[in-house]
């Protein structure tokens, strides 16, 4: 029973809902690489988006109507979104064994966090917009909604590899008979002549050069490099199958020298250097890669300044 007496003003709820839902829709479109591109994947996300926007927008209406029980239940519903993250992580972890080039635990965690955070963001945008509409009217509410969506979008789109790392094509070659090099970065030892032939004929390589300290700390992160390999293989394909482990795409640091650069070698299905470079540049920078910027002693080397 509503104790406020007067008719309920629905406009905060409607505008808040629209803003929250829209904010989630935008991130579905821009975050394509984060999600399974199947209709069922989109449907479940849309359903969650509707629920999140609904919760965010109706809290204020419930509070104004002095329906504290309803408001409490809404916050309870919001906590249910915690499960979204572990569900997403579980799905991706199970997929890990089925794909040839794994994403790596760091990338999976990043995707799961983003997935969860975007639902909360939709909720927050809906809440802010609903509050603004409630107290300042529809016009200002609409403006606040648009600002909230834009701010949320800027806040949520993290840096990409291309922002801090230069990606250039490089030649694959073998030294000392069997050591695979990309440019001057040693990748691995390929013992089988058959695989060496294939690398020489069809292999592609790129060199990743950090633009600064941040870029270098990102590259030293092994989870980040696994994510790069995964995105590279997803873009141009990889001639790899069970029983061909040496044909897996690799992303390794320029190691005996420790110059901070990395090389990537891949046996592509489609030899498209443009697509490969673009895919690497669009790989998101993982949150796990952000911590080491100040602590790693190698970053204080003079040549990086």
């Amino acid at each position: 029973m509503s104790s406020s007496g007067g008719p309920i003003d629905w406009s905060p709820m409607i505008i808040g809902f629209a803003a929250g839902f829209l904010s989630r829709l935008i991130s579905i479109r821009t975050g394509r690489s984060h999600y399974p591109g199947f209709p069922s994947g989109y449907i479940s996300q849309l359903a969650l988006a509707i629920i999140a926007a609904m919760i965010g927008s109706s809290v204020i209406v419930a509070l104004v109507g002095k329906e504290f029980t309803a408001a409490t239940f809404l916050t309870l519903a919001a906590t249910q979104f915690r499960d979204v993250r572990s569900t997403e992580r579980k799905t991706l972890e199970q997929e890990e064994e089925l794909i040839l080039v794994s994403r790596g635990a760091g990338y999976i965690e990043g995707i799961a966090i983003t997935y969860e955070a975007r639902n909360y963001l939709a909720m927050l945008v809906a809440l802010v917009t609903a509050v603004a509409t409630q107290y300042t009217g529809i016009v200002i509410g609409l403006v606040v909604g648009i600002i909230a969506i834009v701010v949320g979008e800027i806040y949520m789109s993290g840096p990409k590899i291309g922002d801090m790392i230069e990606v250039e094509p490089a030649k694959l070659h073998f030294e000392k008979g069997s050591l695979l090099y990309v440019g001057d970065v040693m990748m691995m030892e390929v013992g089988l002549p058959h695989s060496r032939d294939r690398y020489q004929k069809e292999g592609m390589g790129v060199i990743l050069t950090p633009k600064g300290r941040r870029g270098q700390s990102v590259l030293w992160n092994i989870a980040q490099r696994q994510a790069i390999s995964h995105e590279a293989a997803a873009a141009v394909g990889t001639q790899k199958d069970v029983g061909y482990p040496e044909q897996t795409p690799l992303c390794r640091m320029d190691m005996p020298k420790g110059s901070g650069r990395a090389g990537l070698s891949i046996l592509p299905v489609e030899s498209n250097m443009q697509a490969l470079i673009q895919a690497i540049k669009n790989t998101p920078v993982l949150e796990a890669g952000k911590w080491s910027a100040l602590t790693s002693p190698i970053l204080r080397r003079k040549e990086m300044d």
Partner: peptide, 18 residues
């Protein structure tokens, strides 16, 4: 030798080092 090594690699999913 290379033939044997490749054979074993393909069968057991291992990596050859020369």
């Amino acid at each position: 030798r290379d033939r044997i090594a490749m054979w074993l690699c393909r069968i057991t999913n291992c990596i050859a080092h020369d």
